[in-house]
């Protein structure tokens, strides 16, 4: 009987203790971060975006050498890189960030953020730290295809154009090599014919340049 009464009193008193705790909490200041009003990047103090936050990946194209080590390092194969050699006859002569001459165009640099697991292995693998975690996390979208981000500065036509220039150069070189061969064969005999061929190809490159200017 005494235990029974003690049990009752203990039960009610512990409930009162619990109610006291919640009552104190009722008037304590809240800890909520009001996200759209207070952006985590703007908000100073402890809640700043951490340095190693795994947000959207960003590719700094001038730094990228097109070595594809990030593509190899990616555990889920969500990076697709395609490079196109810079043609020597191309009038555009890009430079790397450090001033070196660029050897490859990045005709395609796609990261599928729908597949990416944001592990950051690509950022470690990159020799020039061209691929880094940015602080952008607000890129949810209505369509999944929007998550396939193209980092390459070229659109499809420009890529085709670059490829065409490259093909032209290869063709030219082949022709030149052929011509050289022929010239070597008929070195002393017929020099006038090769001169005229080089002249005609010069005309063609200037035409290409015009087209590119129009498209830009």
């Amino acid at each position: 009987m005494i235990n029974y009464l003690k049990n009752i009193i203990k039960g009610f008193s512990t409930i009162l203790v619990g109610m006291k705790v919640t009552f104190i909490n009722l008037f304590r200041p809240n800890v909520t971060v009001q996200y759209p009003n207070v952006h985590p990047l703007v908000r100073a103090g402890s809640d700043k975006m951490p340095d190693n936050a795994r947000n959207k990946l960003n590719v700094i194209i001038p730094k990228c050498t097109g070595c594809k080590s990030c593509e190899k390092a990616c555990p889920v194969n969500c990076i697709t890189i395609e490079t196109t050699k810079v043609a020597s006859i191309d009038t555009e002569k890009p430079l790397m960030e450090d001033g070196k001459k660029r050897v490859f165009w990045l005709s395609q640099f796609d990261i599928d953020f729908a597949k990416c697991c944001f592990c950051g292995l690509c950022t470690i693998a990159c020799p020039t730290s061209a691929i880094v975690h940015s602080t952008d996390f607000e890129y949810s979208c209505y369509d999944r295809n929007e998550l396939l981000v193209h980092f390459s500065p070229f659109n499809k036509e420009q890529v085709a154009e670059k490829k065409r220039i490259l093909a032209e150069e290869v063709k030219q070189k082949a022709e030149k090599a052929l011509a050289d061969k022929q010239a070597a064969e008929k070195a002393a005999q017929e020099q006038n014919i090769t001169d005229s061929k080089i002249k005609s190809s010069d005309d063609q490159t200037s035409a290409n340049q015009n087209i590119q200017n129009n498209s830009n």
Binding site: N25, F27, R28, P29, N30, T32
Partner: peptide, 13 residues
């Protein structure tokens, strides 16, 4: 609101 305040949050805002 009371539920939120007890949990130190804000509730509908």
């Amino acid at each position: 609101k009371i539920a939120s305040f007890i949990q130190l949050k804000l509730g509908p805002m």
